[in-house]
Each structure stands twice: as structure tokens, then as C-alpha cells.
Design a protein around this nucleic acid. Structure first.
Lengths: 177, 177
DNA sequence: GTCAATACGGCACGTGCCGTGCCGCTAGGA
DNA sequence: TCCTAGCGGCACGGCACGTGCCGTATTGAC
């Protein structure tokens, strides 16, 4: 898995091959195929094995500040190397390979989602978030713009952008929000 | 290009090969390589050549209704076959191939973005959108959740989801919005 | 301490697709 | 009438795939 990440960083995920990983790692190809059925799942495991400081939400009582802090941390991680390009490649692969999509969803997206929703629920109970608001929806509305910028615009994710998104979301589009 | 789309639909983009396209189309491989430098750009051209009824915004004076109508149309197109899976594959490929990313941005994302921003600007001038609101930001906040659901959650895009997103965005997360 | 089972590294194979040569044909313009 | 550019067809070397087979080393049971 270390070799996989090294090669992916050096040449890009597109040029990554199981053959090259085996050679560089000094390992037979069987040894890889015995554990992973495809390049995508090998890459998924490799990336998730880094298991970054689990991105947990603080709860200081101020939702806006907590969200801000947590998303800043996530963005710091995902925006730059080495995580940024690798995670982008992983999401790209998920579009082609359902097994990768499923693994990514269960092992990364779902946990992050759950944490965010839990923090939002606490905020809602304290009256900092509108009572009727569907929190799963709120979660996608929060993440969506970040992923859009990351995957579609391919512009850099900055703290300033996160702040503007958060501000806008709480205020709403309507006048005199 | 027709053959490219046909094969992509039959076997999936991942299994698409220029060799197969040439064979099915009764054409020499040179004839393809002379026009397109890569499978990704061939696919981009093929998909955009369909040039669907250009997804123009109506302007009835009611932003909310116009956005709703336009996004419903976009979602009808992108959610189901044949566009859905093909567009998903295209975005996936864009994560691996910068040339595809650039082409997709310039030729599809940018025009759609511009149209949306223009419609929002008209609404802002009529006081239906908060005066200070950054409209490019508004645009990514609108699109982001849809792309998130399309690419990350991989749940179906429905009219109902679009409506909930729109409602939520105009109201804002804060209580008594 | 012995032995069988298992996982291993190394090598080779057939297959599929890549991208690029070369061939001979054909259609269109000078 | 001829010349050229583009074409379909074919073949090639190269690479990575996924899967066999071989001989070796490690491990766990008895």
C-alpha cells in the first residue's frame, strides 16, 4: 500500500499499474491479486490506510464556529498534496467502478456524513439551526459546494471560500434573511 | 462519435477502446487518432455533439419558479439513461485527464454557469435575491448539492430533491430565516 | 523434531489494447 | 491527366492484464 501511494504520487493514478507496484515492492503479482481484486480497491485501501487524524467535530456550543473549524481542517487535508490529487483520483475512479464507489461511500463518506449530521442535530436542539430543517439535506448542501469546486471547477479550496459558503448558507438567498 | 456513444452505453466507458470503435465503425484507427488525441477527448466530443436542447432559462419574473423549471429539465436529462451514466463517466474521466477537465469546463460547465448567473443577476436586480450576494457563489451553492448527490452519494436525482434544495437555500439554515 | 500445508517471489504465458508504421486504393483539385 | 491527401486494412513492438507453474521459506500440528 505504501508503494501504491508512492507510485500514484509520482506518475499519477492513471499511469499506476499493479505490475509496477509489484515490481517496486519486490513482490509477486499474486501476492497483490490475492488481497485486492482491482487496482481501484487497492488504491482505496491504500489511501484510507493513512487514516488521518479522524477529523472529529469539536462542540463548543457555537455551530457556525465548529463547522468552520472542522471544514477548515478537512479542506487543509484535501486541498493540497499529497491527499488532494490522490483523493481526486479516487473519486474519479469511483465514477467508473461501482465497487470503489461502494467502498468509498461506506468507509469515508458515510462516517464523515454521520459526524456532520450529529453535530448539526446538537445545534438544532439548541435552536441554532431552523427546527424543521432536514439535516441530511443540510449536510449535502454544506458538502456539495466544496465538492463542486474540488471536482468540477477544479479551483483551489481555501478557508476563505469555506467561510463564504457557510455565511451564505446560514443567511439564505432571500433578501432580509 | 455515434459508435463511441453506442459502445459506451453497451459496455460502459471503462471498457471502451479506440480499437473497438474503429472496428465497429468500419474505420482505420488512424482516422480516429488523426482527429482525437485520446479516448477521453473523443468521448467528450461525442457526448457534447448530442447538443441537447440547450437548457435555456425562462424568465417569467419569478426566480424560484424559473430556477426550479430549469433545474428540473437539467435533472431529467442528466439523471437517467442515456445521458446519466455517460455524463458520470465523463466527469470521472475529467478527474484523471486534465485535457478532458479543461474541455468539459469550457464547453459545458462554463456556459451553464454563465446562464445561471445571468438569470440570478436579473433576479437580484428585481430584489428577489439578497443584494450583496455573490452570484458565482450562489451558483456553486445551487449546483454543488446536485453534483454531490450525482457523483458521491450516487442516489437518484429527483424533482423532489431539487425542490427541497431550492427551498432550503432561499430560506437559509438559521432559524426564522 | 518432523512434516504437511500454505504463502511467497520469480518467471512465463496468452490476451487485449495502445500508438505508429507501411501498403494500395480512391476521390478531388490543378 | 496526373498528383496528392485522406482513407481502410494490416502488422508491428510495447505494455499491462490476469493466470498458470515452480522451487523455496515459513508456520502450525502432532
Amino acid at each position: 500500500m505504501r508503494t501504491t501511494l508512492a507510485l500514484a504520487q509520482e506518475a499519477g493514478y492513471a499511469k499506476l499499474s499493479i505490475e509496477a507496484v509489484a515490481a517496486r515492492a519486490g513482490v509477486g503479482k499474486h501476492t497483490i491479486y490475492r488481497r485486492w481484486p482491482s487496482k481501484g480497491l487497492l488504491f482505496l485501501d491504500s489511501l484510507l490506510s493513512l487514516n488521518e487524524p479522524a477529523l472529529d467535530y469539536p462542540d463548543t456550543g457555537d455551530v457556525m464556529a465548529d463547522l468552520r473549524r472542522q471544514i477548515h481542517a478537512a479542506v487543509d487535508l484535501l486541498a493540497g498534496p499529497p491527499w488532494g490529487p490522490l483523493y481526486q483520483a479516487l473519486v474519479g475512479e469511483a465514477q467508473h467502478d461501482p465497487a470503489v464507489a461502494a467502498g468509498l461511500g461506506e468507509r469515508f463518506i458515510r462516517p464523515q456524513t454521520d459526524k456532520t449530521v450529529a453535530r448539526l442535530r446538537a445545534a438544532q436542539e439548541q435552536g441554532q439551526v431552523s427546527p424543521g430543517f432536514d439535516l441530511d439535506l443540510a449536510m449535502t448542501i454544506l458538502s456539495g459546494p466544496l465538492y463542486f469546486r474540488f471536482l468540477i471547477s477544479q479551483e483551489p479550496l481555501t478557508h476563505e471560500y469555506v467561510d463564504r459558503v457557510l455565511e451564505a448558507l446560514f443567511a439564505g438567498l432571500s433578501p432580509r434573511g
